[in-house]
């Protein structure tokens, strides 16, 4: 069953076309990674799919209950503690007075390996990785059945990135949720996703897709490295993924 379908999506900023004729489908329980060179309009597409931006053309069909979004930056409210930031994910769903509220916050924090002592801290007192964990917990607390990831770990160092990817594999890809993961790091895509979709380097449609063998939780480093290497060197579809153009709008 398809839970998210994009049909002929097109978008333009100030008359400059950034996306055109994009078709994309995500099935239930599937994590799709969207890769493409910098400036190909990946983030714009994610924002359109998540309903944060209205596309100029095309249709979006959603059949999941509700989604969570994890952005490139943590986007935490600096005036609220980690616990309040996580609880903000529930703000549209339930009241703060609920007795189960506290336990839900603690559960969500535990899922991303945040300790209870961290919950009383303000974002300024947390490290970069902890902040991104809080952001993930905020997206997961409302129990979405679809999660959008907009290059969430680009700013993190290698070890932290791995840890975060493991969290995503445990909480989303491994537990039957669907998701769309935007990234320009092919090995990250190979590690996390069931299916990889490559965006055309100028946002003109989808260049193609490849399925990744076995499922996200079961891949070892060797397999991830070799698959990503094989994609990059032998598959023409991925020829332009590592190109970049700093001047274009992402």
């Amino acid at each position: 069953m398809t839970v998210l379908q994009l049909e002929q999506i097109g978008h333009a900023f100030l008359g400059r076309t950034v996306l055109d004729g994009i078709d994309l489908a995500v099935k239930a329980g599937e994590m799709v990674a969207l890769v493409g060179p910098s400036g190909s309009g990946k983030s714009t597409l994610a924002h359109i799919a998540a309903g944060l931006l209205d596309p100029r053309r095309g249709r979006i069909y959603r059949s999941y209950r509700h989604h969570g979004v994890i952005f490139q930056e943590p986007r935490l409210m600096p005036w609220a503690t980690a616990a309040d930031n996580i609880a903000f994910g529930l703000v549209a769903h339930s009241r703060k007075g609920c007795p189960i509220f506290r336990t839900r916050v603690e559960d969500a924090a535990a899922r991303v390996a945040l300790e209870p002592a961290d919950l009383a801290k303000f974002p300024a007192q947390l490290s970069g990785g902890m902040r991104q964990r809080v952001a993930i917990a905020r997206a997961l607390i409302a129990e979405p059945d679809f999660v959008f990831f907009d290059e969430p770990f680009t700013a993190l160092d290698v070890a932290l990135k791995r840890r975060m990817q493991d969290i995503v594999i445990d909480t989303v890809a491994g537990s039957g949720l669907s998701g769309l993961f935007i990234t320009h790091d092919l090995s990250e895509a190979v590690r996390i996703a069931h299916h990889i979709v490559v965006l055309d380097s100028h946002g003109r449609g989808v260049a193609g897709g490849r399925s990744v063998p076995s499922s996200p939780g079961e891949r070892d480093d060797r397999m991830v490295f070799e698959t990503a290497h094989a994609f990059l060197t032998e598959d023409r579809l991925f020829a332009h993924v590592n190109d970049y153009n700093e001047r274009s709008i992402t």
Partner: peptide
């Protein structure tokens, strides 16, 4: 203001009035 927080609160499902009160005024 930090516009990133606006998008974030929209993604969480807040309407324009709650966004103004909870995010912008703050």
């Amino acid at each position: 203001r930090d516009r990133g927080l606006d998008d974030m609160s929209r993604a969480v499902g807040l309407g324009p009035i709650s966004r103004l009160v909870r995010i912008a005024l703050r």
